[in-house]
Simulated assay, not measured.
Amino acid sequence: MAMRSGAYPVKDTDGDDAPDMVVHTFHVDGMNGSLSTRIARVSGASGMDIDEKTFIGALAVEYPAGNLTADGVPDSIIAIYQLNGSMSGELEDDLMNITATTLEAIDGQGGAKLWEQSFDGPAMAVPLTDLTGDGMDDLAAYLIRYGEDASITNDMALLHGSDGAVLWQKSFPGFMAIGVPGADQTGEGLKDMIIYKVEGSEGVETVAVKGDDGRQLWNRTGMIYLPTDLLGQELLSFLPASL
């Protein structure tokens, strides 16, 4: 059984002056239920495949990841999830079946792999902005953790956009943590990060950390902080609807 997901446009790479598309095809083996993923870059003008990658026994998703090189062309991340067993269709069960995640950064200009980083269990990387001053976007990696009481929390790591190195990592026992770019809280000329620690539908704590090394600057309970140099709607789009 095969299922084709929606596509999204990317920069023209085959010289036809039309944006290309990235298309995912997921195949579930009818005999053993194993999953494989095909990711193809498709010509926007002709609909023909330009190139493709196949991931056997894994769920793989490619998505935009900001600018990870100095060329100004948007790049992407392929998140490759290794599964222990087959997909059930239930989100919580399927997350628990993910044994490892590999994040591959892909050059938007030519499609070459820039770097890769691996984590145990499920993880995803979200583009932020340049927090280190090298002119390239960095990424927040969310590492999902399961408690003995079946609760779900997450650790957070900052990945250096240019090479995928883990610059810092924090744990938030009992909380889900959401990080967004903040203003320059230290006056050093670099943007810092605002982390929202969410507990259930009510408890919220705002933590400001130094963007390049994760050092905590301050924290406030029950406060939502809107940096003046960010659009409020852009920031609020990251927050849970319950807030």
Rank of each mutant, 00 (worst) to 15 (best):
V180M: 12
G111C: 03
V23L: 11
G47Y: 05
A7H: 09
M87G: 12
G222A: 09
D12T: 01
T221R: 13
I78M: 00
P122N: 14
A165K: 12
L190E: 05
D51P: 06
H27K: 12
L59T: 03
V126A: 03
V22K: 02
Q109V: 13
P64C: 01
A60W: 08
K113C: 10
L167H: 01
H24R: 10
T101P: 08
T25A: 04
I195F: 09
R4F: 10
M21W: 09
E205K: 15
D75Y: 00
N84F: 00
M87T: 12
S151G: 11
A141R: 14
L114R: 07
V28A: 08
E188N: 13
D14I: 02
I152M: 15
K11V: 12
M31P: 00
V204T: 13
E104K: 14
D14E: 04
P240K: 07
D184F: 07
D51L: 10
T101R: 11
A79D: 02
E116V: 05
L239R: 13
H160M: 01
A7N: 10
I56M: 00
G133I: 15
G85V: 11
G57W: 00
L217H: 11
E148L: 02
G189N: 05
T132K: 12
M3S: 14
A140G: 06
G203C: 01
Q169G: 08
I194L: 15
A70P: 06
V10K: 00
D163H: 09
Y196K: 12
D155F: 07
Q82N: 11
V180P: 07
S201F: 05
E205W: 05
G164Q: 13
L235I: 15
L235V: 15
E202A: 09
Y142V: 10
A60R: 04
M156K: 15
V207Q: 14
H160S: 06
S88Y: 08
L131V: 08
E92N: 11
G164H: 12
V10C: 00
R38E: 10
H27A: 13
W218T: 04
D155I: 07
D51R: 13
T221L: 07
N154A: 07
F175I: 04
D192Y: 04
Y8S: 04
F55H: 06
D163A: 06
L128K: 06
P127N: 09
D107P: 01
D75Q: 00
